[in-house]
Simulated assay, not measured.
Amino acid sequence: MAMKTVVIISGSGSNLQALIDRANEIGIEISGVISNREEAFGLQRAQRAGITTALVDHRQFESRETFDAALSETIDGMQAQLVILAGFMRILTPEFTRRYEGRMLNIHPSLLPKYRGLHTHRRALEAGDEWHGATVHFVTEELDGGATIIQAPVAVSSADSEETLAAKVHAVEHRIYPLAAQWFAEGRLRLEQGVAYLDNAPLPVEGYQYHD
């Protein structure tokens, strides 16, 4: 049986689309898509695919805690077995992350632990890095700090701009996020005492290294 999965977004939802396109193949059923922004294009992507959507607007709540409580209620109402953050631009409370620890994934546009936070492509270019990329990791209380599952490096060219580098990273994101979701749905991937395991073997700190 496909694993009920809820995807949480704030923007265009390109990683959501990658998951929608491969949901049957990777063994997930996207039972709902939640956004904190009404204008998020990802909501339209979900609706076109016949997926239930919900808006939980953070601006309607007095605190992070009350917003996260409403978000949790919405997630649980969609019977989520797996929670996927896909461009969700909110810092989550420790209570929220603990509630879903071990079954919540995020994707970040850098080779973590490098460049946690925002503007990762600019920072990689300014540093003169030869390699940049994307990381899928378990979500914990530490911002962009949960155990790494999979990384995909991309070569940085001297001709790259923020836009061209972002496009390269997006391309690999759309490959590795469905793969991580598939591993979880198949019961091959788990988090145990802060360590990610694949096929009962602990993954290295940098995770599984994906190459085309």
Rank of each mutant, 00 (worst) to 15 (best):
Q60V: 01
E62Q: 10
D21W: 04
V154Y: 13
G77H: 03
E101A: 12
H58E: 04
A18E: 10
Q44W: 03
T53Q: 04
T66Q: 11
G87E: 08
V156H: 06
G117S: 07
Q47K: 15
R48V: 12
L118C: 06
R90D: 00
L105M: 15
T164W: 08
H132M: 01
G13N: 08
H108Q: 11
R45N: 12
F41D: 07
H132S: 13
E95R: 15
P109N: 07
E130W: 00
Y177W: 13
A155Y: 01
L118F: 04
G11P: 10
E29K: 10
A152R: 10
T148G: 00
Q81R: 10
E141W: 09
G42F: 12
I107F: 08
R48C: 00
N15L: 02
V136E: 07
E126M: 06
S110A: 15
I34L: 11
A70L: 09
E206S: 12
G133S: 05
H211K: 13
E65A: 14
A69K: 14
A86V: 04
R190G: 00
E29P: 01
V56K: 04
G145D: 08
L125P: 03
A167M: 14
V172F: 06
E62R: 15
T164N: 06
L118R: 11
G117Y: 04
E38S: 12
H58M: 04
L189C: 09
S10M: 09
H108Y: 04
A159D: 09
R99Y: 05
Y208D: 03
E25F: 04
A147T: 08
L143A: 10
G27W: 02
V156Q: 05
S14G: 01
E126H: 03
G146L: 12
R122W: 08
R48E: 12
P94D: 11
I176D: 04
H132F: 05
L19R: 05
D21N: 15
A54N: 06
A166Q: 15
D76H: 07
N36S: 15
V195Y: 01
T53I: 13
L85A: 04
A40P: 06
K168Q: 09
P204T: 11
I91R: 13
D199Q: 05
R45L: 06
T52D: 01
A124E: 04
I28A: 01
A180E: 02
E130G: 13
D68N: 13
I149C: 00
E163N: 14
S12V: 06
A180I: 05
K168L: 13
Q17K: 14
A70P: 03
D212A: 12
F184C: 03
E25Q: 15
V169A: 03
A134I: 09
A46D: 03
G187N: 13
N24T: 11
R190A: 06
Q47F: 05
I30R: 01
Q44R: 15
N36E: 02
Q182V: 00
G133I: 12
R103S: 05
S35R: 12
D57N: 14
L125R: 03
D76M: 07
V83N: 02
Q44H: 13
V195A: 02
L92Q: 14
P153V: 08
A185E: 10
G133D: 10
V56P: 02
R188A: 13
M89W: 07
